[in-house]
Simulated scan of single mutants.
Amino acid sequence: MSQRRLLHRYYFFGLDGLVHAYVGLRLVPDLDAFPGLGAALAIVLVLSAILIPTSMLARRRSAGPGLRAAMWLGLLCMGLFSSLLVLTLLRDVVLAAASALALFLPAWQPGGLAGASAEFVLAAACFMSVAGFVGARRVARVTTVDIPVAGLPPALEGFTIAQISDIHVGPTIRESYVRRIVETVNGLRADMVAITGDLVDGSVPDLAQHVRPLGGLSSRHGTFFVTGNHEYYAGAHAWVEALRGLGMRVLLNEHAVVRHAGHAIVIAGITDFSAHQFDPAHRSDPQRAIAGAPADAAVKVVLAHQPRSAALTAPAGFDLQLSGHTHGGQFLPWNFLVPLQQPYVQGLHREQRMWVYINRGTGYWGPPMRFGVPSEITLLRLVRDDKVTRPHSKEHP
């Protein structure tokens, strides 16, 4: 292991310990109303401080049952601790404001606020973790979205694309989870399927078995795939070959032409926005992806993992970009941080003359937790723009 990598690991463990200590010192002393509650939280925080870095460091190793169990526990702790940390920070802001107010209003004293707020933080964090776990582990719901296309031939009215994204097959998302996604997608009977990256969180030898059900995806024109940033963390070249072996059309800055009802539809795909950092030959290139496309194509669709690729794909002449990457924020506090990196977080948006749709993610990354941001399988329908006054989407239970 390089000295630099070892140093980063020390920093990670140190920061992990510090933030856990902060939460413990701020909450445990004020949980005296219920005997044993503070001690129980202290034990949970110590275990969390150990299990979270353990689960992160073990993610890229072949895991037996014991290590997988530790990874599960660590990722569950990550979800719970994330909520505890955010709520503890907010609690400290409230307590500071209450103390400042007491200076100006001596008659008003916030007695009991420290204990009540500590209990609230613990209860709210537990509720968010349980609700988030249920939200993450259920099969993604189908969201139907109409995409108005100028000059769409009547024969292409209702052409459907089933989009899945950011499944993150890995420590907690395995074969059975993937199989349920496939069953739901196949039930849509879409004209084609698009997978917009971040399919895996691990190597081909570790996860090939759990990705294999995706070979059963069924549609009229087949399944198209583009790489996300996590494919490059996990060995993109090996995954490209493995997915081609499952019958997917992997688009690396290239396009395919689908003939439907006598009309041409261009399906292009670009490599991830950051791919060149891992392989200069994989630099994302929308112009290359559309080069040589038929001039008479009725619709031009591009699959691009990150929404911020839209600034480059729109000038290339595409009508629609399908993206993922953001997970819609997934849970607090990330839903507030994603907009700092990406121009769009979820749903349908306009970039110049091109529509951009961002799938919230069909799985999840890291902790099995989705709070307030449900996972999604998208069914996109092409419609003539003169039939739609305002694009809309509908989520099905």
Rank of each mutant, 00 (worst) to 15 (best):
A136T: 02
R212L: 14
I164M: 14
V240H: 15
E231G: 04
E183I: 02
D198V: 09
R180Y: 00
R244K: 12
G215S: 08
G235R: 05
V178C: 09
E241V: 01
R244N: 03
T172C: 07
A190P: 02
Y177F: 15
R180A: 11
R189Y: 06
V250Y: 11
V226C: 07
P154V: 01
E241Y: 00
V266F: 12
A242G: 05
V178L: 11
A140L: 07
D198F: 06
G187P: 01
W239M: 08
A238R: 15
H237Y: 03
A194G: 04
V258W: 07
G235T: 00
T271K: 08
G222K: 07
T172E: 14
L217C: 08
P154A: 13
V142N: 10
V250T: 06
G202K: 11
A136I: 03
V142L: 15
L217S: 07
R244A: 04
R244I: 00
I265Q: 11
F159D: 00
R179D: 12
T144Q: 12
Y232L: 05
T184I: 02
A194K: 10
G222L: 10
S219H: 10
G235H: 04
A194N: 07
I181Q: 03
A242V: 03
H221P: 05
T143M: 14
R174Q: 14
F225W: 11
S274N: 12
I270P: 05
G215Q: 11
E254T: 09
F224N: 08
T172W: 02
P154E: 10
H230Y: 08
D201A: 07
R249Q: 14
V182S: 05
E254H: 02
G197C: 10
Q163S: 08
R141I: 00
E175M: 09
I164V: 15
D146E: 14
G202N: 13
V139H: 07
H255G: 04
H230Q: 06
L243A: 07
V169H: 00
S165P: 01
S176H: 10
T196Q: 12
T271R: 14
G202V: 11
T143G: 04
V169S: 01
A140R: 11
V200D: 10
T172H: 02
V139D: 06
R244W: 00
W239L: 05
I181T: 05
V149C: 04
A150V: 06
R137M: 13
R174P: 01
V250K: 10
A208W: 07
M248R: 08
A264E: 10
F159E: 00
L207I: 04
R259Q: 12
V178H: 05
A136E: 00
Y177N: 12
A155N: 03
D191Y: 12
